[in-house]
């Protein structure tokens, strides 16, 4: 029942927001996170083609032995990824709320350039209120 991290990946596969919560997973360098986000973007595209029964979405939930990643793909191609412990039941609804916060505090911000890293205090505070400071 713990949230380890949140990523926002733009439609080109670039990591535009990354934040860790707590010490459940080791903290990597920002470069490593960029590489992982790019990899995930590619994997997500491939997984939708491997379906044995007609068209499929991309990967929605990726599980390791002690943690899982829940992925929300929006209609515009932006991906929200939440890293949690395996026993986190409402990762999906947290992601939905993160999406709302993103729409309010990032997309409505006139100073934000689309597809560029998110540097918005408003978004940070909304995420802190939603998930905790970590």
């Amino acid at each position: 029942m713990a949230i380890h991290g949140l990523w926002v990946i733009n439609k080109a596969g670039g990591l535009v927001y990354q934040r860790n919560f707590g010490d459940g997973l080791p903290h990597l360098t920002s470069n490593e996170y960029l590489v992982l986000a790019g990899t995930l973007h590619g994997i997500h595209a491939i997984t939708s083609r491997l379906s044995p029964t007609g068209s499929s979405s991309g990967a929605q939930e990726i599980c390791g032995e002690t943690f899982k990643m829940t992925i929300l793909l929006t209609a515009t191609g932006t991906k929200f990824v939440l890293l949690t412990s395996l026993a986190e039941p409402n990762a999906g609804s947290v992601l939905q709320k993160v999406y709302e916060a993103y729409a309010d505090a990032v997309m409505k911000n006139p100073f934000h350039t689309p597809e560029m890293p998110i540097r918005s205090e408003g978004f940070d505070t909304r995420i802190t209120a939603l998930i905790g400071s970590g």
Partner: peptide, 30 residues
């Protein structure tokens, strides 16, 4: 390719020798 990439990603993220177990999409689970 998917299996190998996910396996490396899970190892990297967990920081230890953790295995990738499964993933799921809307129509299947691997």
């Amino acid at each position: 390719g998917v299996v190998l990439s996910l396996r490396n990603m899970v190892k990297k993220l967990s920081g230890k020798d953790e295995q990738f177990v499964n993933y799921k999409t809307s129509t299947y689970k691997m």
